[in-house]
């Protein structure tokens, strides 16, 4: 098994920052807001490795920095410091030292993102098929007929009714919007996918089918994934390893079943106990 992503010391501070930011935030300080300068230490010193085809969970309560981790890796936001290396076949990319064009290329070709809020992942003013075509256009597939065929195949794969290819996603149910987002993310067959609370807020039965779809994709395409969720059930079903975050810091990492059944940190013990 090969490493696909190596993240070291990833940090993101919103605000001016000051010399006391780090010591006055985090789990011990019980806040991520620096009392001295008002900055938010959204994440600090996050490190992990991800292997090909592996699903890593990022868990923790609201505001702990889960989304910030994937947003920086997907270039939605620049980190304040830290390093991430993406290994792609025989090439490797130092993500945060690439220029904007190179970052855009990776985003469009090698990474995929599914946001909790479909608004962020989809263009609501163009059809479902158009959303996927848009992503294919940014890659190298140029011929209109081929793009349409591929968009249809992807929507079929994610079980979106083909009769709705030309409808606007804003008229879709939440579960279907997530399917279109997944189809769009998969369009370029990226080896690395970020999933941020993809099933949050959906009906249990809709949730179930999406989880099923995600696992099938992972097994079929060997896609590596970082799955962000505060739902411990989703973590247990999808992921092999997980990291636990609190106030921007990683407080525990381990095999997922070990974190859930033999949590080491006081906070994780409380988190797991409260979910039972």
């Amino acid at each position: 098994m090969n490493k696909i992503l190596e993240v070291r010391g990833l940090s993101k501070i919103y605000g001016p920052g000051c010399p006391q930011c780090l010591e006055s935030t985090g789990p011990e300080a019980d806040t991520n807001l620096c009392p001295h300068c008002g900055s938010v230490v959204a994440i600090h010193d996050v490190s992990f490795d991800l292997f090909e085809g592996e699903i890593l969970g990022v868990m923790g309560e609201s505001g702990s920095g889960k989304s910030t981790v994937v947003k920086t890796l997907y270039f939605d936001q620049a980190p304040s410091s830290g390093e991430a290396i993406f290994f792609d076949n025989d090439r490797q990319y130092d993500l945060f030292s690439l220029n904007a064009a190179q970052q855009r290329w990776l985003r469009n070709h090698r990474f995929g993102m599914v946001y909790q809020n479909p608004n962020l992942g989809l263009n609501f003013n163009i059809s479902a098929g158009g959303n996927i075509a848009e992503r294919l256009l940014m890659s190298d597939l140029m011929d209109y007929g081929a793009i349409r065929e591929r968009a249809k195949a992807l929507l079929a794969r994610t079980e979106v009714l083909l009769s709705r290819v030309d409808d606007l996603p804003k008229h879709f149910s939440g579960g279907m919007q997530q399917r279109v987002q997944i189809a769009k993310a998969l369009a370029t067959q990226p080896p690395l996918l970020f999933l941020d609370e993809v099933t949050t807020g959906l009906d249990l039965s809709v949730q179930a089918r999406i989880l099923d779809l995600i696992l099938e994709i992972q097994q079929e395409l060997k896609t590596a994934m970082v799955v962000v969720t505060h739902d411990l059930g989703v973590i247990r079903l999808l992921t092999g390893r997980a990291i636990v975050m609190k106030y921007g810091r990683v407080i525990e990492t381990g095999l997922t079943d070990q974190i859930l059944e033999d949590p080491q940190h006081a906070y994780t013990q409380r988190l797991v106990a409260s979910a039972l």
Binding site: L204, Q207, L211, D212, L237, G240
Partner: peptide, 21 residues
């Protein structure tokens, strides 16, 4: 994880599986 996938199996007292699978 690799050993669990290829060599070591565990039949536990509880079954965890995807809902509706």
């Amino acid at each position: 994880l690799e050993l669990r996938r290829r060599e070591i199996g565990f039949v536990t007292q509880f079954l965890h599986c995807l809902p509706r699978q």
